[in-house]
Design a binder for these strands. Structure first.
Lengths: 338, 338
DNA sequence: TTGTATGCGTTATCAT
DNA sequence: ATGATAACGCATACAA
């Protein structure tokens, strides 16, 4: 059916091993023979059987991605960055989504492990508190890169943004506009991203001597559009409603904008708003939403790069290497100083 | 290192072949022994080596996805549907993006072929006019499912929506509101989706005895936000500007809304608008955008199902089987009758 | 620099 | 119902 290195060997009067080595640009083979063999391979339409190569060499040239859900702007852009980078280096990309369920994350991790991926890129599910299911990877020397939603305690590569500082800046941005009562839509606190955004918010208030009012901190499980509306309703019913909102994601912030408009509350005059992520919608909604911009594509590229370097350099495992990428505050019409 | 069927064989005093058969629920093995073996396998932490199985059986339990770009709402939702369905059936999903380049599509198709995917799901790149690079798949009996952007001439499975009729309905929706001069943002005409949307638009006008004005048909290469703005500018400069716009996608329609608002033109009173896709932004922009809703997730599920059935039923190749899914017109505030 | 021989872990063919 | 053996296509240790 398909042509193998044995067919090439017969045709060119070489041994299969020479063919194999030439195809892999092995040093020991002469330049001319290497070129001849590669040329003949192309002519005869030789297609390497990657399964066989992987079985033998125990290296798959495939990297696994394990994320919550693909159809979210941040995640799909992240994957896009990974895929483009991987493709350039001749790697395949296997994806799987946990749909934010801890159990599915474990199942998928095991499947990816069985697929002998040469590296794993993970962004944790909303439910994940324990990350033991990734130990098998590092135990086998397979590099694991955590992106964005990362565990605190797991020793591995991590690609993140400075959530604390970004949140601090975002909150400060509201303060500089004159906001005195700033609410915060907070996400699940066991996840680094939401926990640190909350800390940044709190510290910005402290730093500017603004009293912290716990009624203004609304904990949301998934920061969904629906939850955003409920949270905003709750805030408006307060004796002293807020004059600013820092939301831990754009979805909930957009929901707030939509609801506040319905209630005839002026943005930013009555309530200024800033979100997090810079989803495409943020620049299109009216008024457009100030937010924190995440370098999602770049994070994807970098995550893959880290895996590639690990596998080529055979870096020592067990060391935590953390890459912190820059964010930027994007000021739009939901801010008073526009 | 990792435990194999040989280890199990020794431990349980069976031959490797019996172990293999039991693990695969082969009919010839007794119920009790099968159960015993499977139980022991789980206890000993046996993980099948899929590479080896694939090499031997020439079946990979992996399906390939080849799309333009992941980070678009329609595409990422499509992939999400594929992945969820595939995972449930124990299949892995390999993704690759063409970035809308013909050359990359060919390269990626070849890579996927080499990966011995057991099925391929494709949505063509914007540039693709020739689809010979998919013949190798069907020649080898690997099912190819084209989704959404499909070739006309290639004999294979196709999962699409009725673009013609959807466009007809959308245009008619504008006509029923009293629009007399309806513009159309048309996409690349060599792609079925945009070609048929244009036809539906034209026939709806004819059917209602509305004269066709070629100045109102704007051909856009990528239907991007930028192109949408330029197209809208052009329309406004016309001696007789339109009173309705049917855009072949939401992105360009959203751009039109944004620009028209800047120009103080009332939507829908002066110009009514309808888009295509029902991107998340459509319901959030002000005024919200009427549009045609695409069952992206379902299309993904169905595409995978078709591959699964093909591989189990060993259906005859060379037959074109086309699945046409329903769309629905979603009426929002960019329509006069809301 | 090139060739020989073996094994990666599994499934399939033939036999019992 | 179970076992022995070969083969899938490739890469590598060892030999030359």
């Amino acid at each position: 059916m398909s042509i193998t290195i044995y067919d090439l060997a017969k045709k060119l009067n070489y041994s299969p091993s020479t063919i194999s080595r030439a195809l892999n640009n092995h040093k020991s083979i002469g330049k001319k023979t290497t070129l001849n063999i590669q040329k003949a391979a192309k002519e005869m339409g030789y297609k390497p059987n990657t399964q066989a190569a992987s079985l033998r060499s125990k290296q798959s040239k495939t990297i696994g991605i394990l994320i919550s859900r693909i159809n979210r702007p941040f995640v799909s852009t992240l994957i896009s960055g990974i895929e483009d980078a991987a493709r350039k280096s001749g790697y395949n990309v296997l994806i799987s989504q946990s749909n934010d369920h801890y159990k599915d994350e474990i199942t998928n991790a095991n499947t990816l492990l069985q697929s002998r991926v040469s590296g794993l890129i993970v962004s944790l599910s909303m439910e994940t508190k324990n990350t033991d299911h990734f130990k098998e990877f590092t135990d086998q020397g397979i590099p694991v890169v955590f992106v964005d939603r990362v565990p605190l305690s797991f020793n591995s590569y991590k690609v993140i943004i400075d959530n604390y500082n970004s949140a601090f800046q975002a909150t400060q941005h509201l303060i500089e506009q004159g906001c005195k009562r700033i609410a915060h839509f907070a996400g699940s606190q066991h996840l680094n991203v939401y926990n640190q955004r909350r800390s940044g918010y709190l510290d910005a208030l402290k730093h500017h001597n603004i009293p912290i009012d716990k009624e203004l901190i609304i904990n949301l499980k998934s920061l969904s559009f629906e939850e955003g509306k409920i949270a905003t309703e709750k805030l408006l019913k307060l004796p002293l409603p807020p004059d600013g909102i820092f939301s831990a994601n754009d979805t909930a912030a957009l929901s707030a904008i939509t609801y506040l408009k319905e209630q005839q509350i002026r943005i930013p005059e009555d309530i200024a708003i800033i979100g997090f992520n810079d989803d495409p919608i943020a620049s299109i909604i009216e008024p457009s939403l100030s937010t924190v911009s995440h370098p999602a594509y770049k994070m994807g590229e970098l995550s893959f790069q880290r895996i590639l370097e690990h596998t080529t350099d055979r870096t020592i495992a067990g060391v935590s290497e953390i890459f912190v990428l820059d964010t930027s505050i994007i000021i739009r019409k939901s801010s008073k100083r526009y």
